[in-house]
Write a protein that binds this DNA or RNA. Structure first.
Lengths: 233, 233
DNA sequence: TCTCGATATATCGAGCCGATACATCGAAGC
DNA sequence: GCTTCGATGTATCGGCTCGATATATCGAGA
């Protein structure tokens, strides 16, 4: 149980905070929440749910045993609905309030951001600014790397890295806008600068069809994950 | 040994194709090659090297046993230099020539692209166009996901996804430029459209400091992580 | 001298993915 | 009415990869 990344745990807790759910439904929402094509597997989710139950953060909630198909295997294999326990709620609040260095990292940041609607403005600012400083460190390493690559590698390799560098630069600019919005919105509303129909932040608005932006960062990752880092998504 | 992703194997083979190297040096170059911050760990690299030796693609090349510190542990633990075998060279050529669906994926694409300088233009085109179609599929899923998110999730979640969507759109545009360049460069040069000092492709050029885009994508990848892509500048 | 960081190889625990297996249900097609 | 197929639903297994850690040497600087 040692070094749980905690990111999945956090996301599960956050979704169940809204409403009880069973695994399959949870997975669908999770895949929407943390990044589309990001196909979180059952091999990850179910063990995680069990672990959370074992830790006392979740309870299985099989109400009136409806939907019990009573499998051919003479056993039971019904729908298992999970619900947050009091400890689970508390745990979620803790994770939510943690704006420390962990929350700057690729995956953690995404989940934190997704739950920003339930956070204090102070926490949001700290996460946003911390994330930005993380990326700026990254940027410096990438620029050095690019310089070395120009000497040692061919044009394609260099082009690849240049693109990666720009992706990160673009994320920094995005963060700048968000931070700016948080600053100016200190009177009230919780919403971010929604690109769709801009509020306070100057956006080009890309809306449904793109007009002239575009970029991404596979992986994550190392990304983003990657991987993981990773990025985009 | 079952389901090797092959991406690391490919990268190692490619780097050793240029010159023999030992693990530590290999790791440094690998981290430059496949995407900066993407800190490939020794726990991944060394087992991979062993596997490649076992498969006959690499040979250990301990020439005159120089640099043998003769550890305190009365044993030997010297520098191990790896060199491509004939089979290894052949294997690399095979991987390089494979422009099939695997090469469209996030991580594979990055490595393939990095070695484009050693490829035929036909292969480059196929990989580039395949990658683009992959991303366009992704785009469609992401747009659906975003639509669902607008109903079910709050503004911050939606903003996160909007940003991810734009990242992918941006990568598609990058690919379009690269494809365009390959088409027009059919007479000769092997280099890509180097953003630095634009060649044939019309670039907006954003240069070192950003001016107004910004985005990225946590996780990912994951991502990765990793990976990468970029857009000119 | 002592410490520190780079060089260098190696292993371990744990997370997570992808594939797969099993089982039910409703809708569509024949 | 029958069958097929895809969505719903829970679960496990193999294997890759990361992050941390252990061990050991060497050169630079305090």
């Amino acid at each position: 149980m040692g070094r749980r990344s905690g990111v999945l745990e956090f996301a599960v807790l956050g979704l169940l905070h809204d409403a009880p759910m069973h695994g399959y439904e949870l997975r669908k929402r999770l895949n929407i929440l943390l990044g589309t094509f990001r196909a979180l597997s059952y091999g990850t989710l179910y063990p995680c749910l069990k672990s959370l139950v074992a830790q006392g953060f979740l309870v299985e909630d099989n109400p009136d045993v409806e939907y019990v198909p009573a499998t051919a295997l003479n056993g039971k294999r019904s729908k298992i609905v999970y619900r947050l326990s009091a400890e689970g709620k508390q745990r979620f609040e803790e994770l939510l309030a943690d704006s420390g260095p962990d929350a700057w990292e690729d995956e953690h940041f995404g989940v934190h951001f997704a739950f920003f609607g339930q956070t204090d403005r102070a926490v949001r600012m700290r996460v946003l600014e911390g994330r930005r400083s993380r990326l700026e460190e990254r940027l410096e390493r990438m620029r050095n790397s690019l310089a070395r690559a120009r000497e040692r590698f061919d044009d394609y390799t260099v082009e690849l890295q240049r693109h990666g560098l720009e992706s990160v630069e673009r994320e920094v600019r995005w963060l700048n806008e968000l931070i700016e919005t948080e600053r100016s919105n200190r009177t009230g509303r919780t919403g971010p600068a929604t690109g769709g129909d801009s509020t306070a932040v100057p956006h080009k608005t890309s809306d449904g069809r793109g007009q002239e932006t575009g970029s991404s960062d596979p992986s994550g990752p190392p990304y983003d994950r990657p991987g993981r880092s990773a990025q985009e998504r």
